[in-house]
Write a protein that binds this DNA or RNA. Structure first.
Length: 158
DNA sequence: GCCAACGTTGGC
DNA sequence: GCCAACGTTGGC
């Protein structure tokens, strides 16, 4: 099983939205090749996802989601009325893909970016890097476990 | 709202 | 293929 971090602006789609709607969310609108490649080529059903709120106050990890459907073409790329429409992507040769994710867990608090940066166990984690804009990124298993531990407010295991 | 960092586009 | 211009992301 692999671990990931996926960003969403809570004004657009938050973990509260995912929990409330009670069904998986198609993670549409990703228009970055690296992020697409991760979704299309690497993500498998059962993979775990740190749900990250970006452009929030504060920004940070707010819970956990799970990949429940493997990648398929992003239909919003075919829709001229959609804000993520991309005429280069054709149904017979799609450019953009998405996976579906389901709600797993919402943390009692937020693990803010400052918290992530302050924890030496998370050194090297991509999301901490300045200028890191990738909206879908892999997470090392030990980093995933540590962030979940922080999110649950559990004491550090030595 | 500012702006640094980054990805993409397009002229040459 | 270079690189300047532009658009977007996202922290602050």
């Amino acid at each position: 099983m692999r671990y990931w971090l996926m960003k969403s602006e809570p004004d657009e789609f938050s973990i509260e939205d995912l929990e409330r709607q009670g069904h998986p969310e198609p993670w549409d609108g990703v228009r970055n090749y690296q992020a697409r490649n991760f979704m299309r080529d690497k993500m498998k059903v059962g993979d775990r996802v740190l749900f990250y709120h970006s452009n929030a106050n504060p920004s940070g990890v707010v819970g956990v989601a799970e990949v429940v459907k493997k990648a398929y073409p992003d239909p919003t790329a075919f829709d001229p009325n959609d804000k993520h429409y991309d005429p280069k992507s054709k149904p017979e040769a799609p450019t953009w893909f998405l996976v579906e994710v389901a709600f797993v867990e919402r943390f009692p608090g937020i693990v803010s970016l400052a918290d992530l940066k302050a924890n030496r166990r998370l050194s090297g984690m991509a999301v901490r890097k300045k200028g890191q804009r990738l909206s879908v990124q892999p997470v090392a298993p030990r980093h995933f476990d540590e962030v979940v531990r922080m999110g649950r407010g559990e004491d550090a295991a030595e």
